[in-house]
Design a protein around this nucleic acid. Sequence first.
DNA 1: GTCAAGAAGAATATACGATATATGATCTGC
DNA 2: GCAGATCATATATCGTATATTCTTCTTGAC
Lengths: 251, 251
Amino acid sequence: MKKESTMADLGLGEEIEGLPLPSGRLHHVVAQRLATQIVSGDTPCGHVFPAEVEHAEMLGVSRSVLREAFRVLTAKGLVSSRPKAGTRINERRKWNLLDPDVLGWQIQCGASDEFLRDLFELRMVVEPQAAEMAAMRRDERQLVDMANALDAMERFTLSTPKGRAADIRFHELLMEATRNEMLLALSNSISTAIASTTAIKQSRDGSPRDAMPEHYALYTQIADRNPRQARRAMITLIELAHSDTKIALKR
Amino acid sequence: MKKESTMADLGLGEEIEGLPLPSGRLHHVVAQRLATQIVSGDTPCGHVFPAEVEHAEMLGVSRSVLREAFRVLTAKGLVSSRPKAGTRINERRKWNLLDPDVLGWQIQCGASDEFLRDLFELRMVVEPQAAEMAAMRRDERQLVDMANALDAMERFTLSTPKGRAADIRFHELLMEATRNEMLLALSNSISTAIASTTAIKQSRDGSPRDAMPEHYALYTQIADRNPRQARRAMITLIELAHSDTKIALKR
DNA sequence: GTCAAGAAGAATATACGATATATGATCTGC
DNA sequence: GCAGATCATATATCGTATATTCTTCTTGAC
């Protein structure tokens, strides 16, 4: 008895119509909801949330769920909570902006112009150098995997999820070829962000420019172990992506 | 009644002798303990932890605490848990290596040679470029703050916590001057890592080389808006830190 | 006889709610 | 101003119920 509050039923408002929507863990759903509230700026920095009990029943979940949701937000630097003081939103400089989830939430809330500027600037700082390193350190296996990824990318095109996955795979292999785990991690964060924008780009703009020639150019330079040329190729690739993204989001 | 298990009592093993050690939140302590087990490689990737109930009483904490600890680790990509399958350690490529905590734990567990190589390589990729940007975009306030930080750094020296804090503050201001939030976030992650190594460097080597001249050189180039020279100055600064760190850890 | 598809079961994470404790911000009195 | 009391709040624990999914067994077809 007391069957009323199972996981998939009510609570999170309105998206439960039809599909049962136990899609994610409940605390993760709550975390996501709170996170988007925060990064979107709906609730400003310094804001302190209601007390746990009140807040929990306001959201229609148990306190445990709410607490676990806040744990992940705390882990990502978005909030911090202390006894008696409540749970409050940290200032932006405390946020883990490079966390894949934080990056994703930020994009989901509509990436601002400054956000895109910063993101592509970061890519411009890191990835050309990474391409240079990859050209020097890549091994044969990575090379053939990269070739396969490009092949899949051309077959499926960027308008399909599989094509976009191949694109990501290519960049991931490139970063793996740098033989630097931290660069790889950084790239993973960026990639997920880029993936979302690419999807948006596709959905808004039916036929964006074909980026395959530039990808092949980059691949060739890495295969030939030409660090300087690989750097140049990566720069043009990023510039291309940047201008495309700007155009797509303008519409 | 049932007074036996308050927060500050037993549980986490042996470090509670003398000092009450309710220093941090309990779940955070547990998370830290598990995290160090993971990043140190004590428990290998793919390992699945005992069931929650068993694991909880093994650690002497409640299930809620253990769960919240795992939420933190999950948020940082170290583990993932699914019903029936248990909670298992992810492969390294899933970890958020750039997360300040993950970085810190990794250093605490004895940074490997590869770790330091990757870290300084990342600095070498990002920070010279950042210095260049800072030289172009810095404003007057940042300039005077940087001067103050350098002043404090010279007064207290790197052998004191206040001196090291000033060092960090200087680099933070530099990154702030780039006017790119993501670069700032990246720098924050790196800084905390560097801070630990600096402390180690100090504790092992009584009188390391004085890095003040190089810091002033960098400052001057930024103040004079010389991007190229600022880049050069930053490169020598990082090289200096790298060689010092390597020497210190050799002992 | 062997293998694949499907159904039953069991182990596990997940979720709920009530209760007790510790902490620290705020107020009070001096 | 400063020290102490207070009280709201996060923190921690326990017991129980639910949902998920891996495992295993069965069933069926070839």
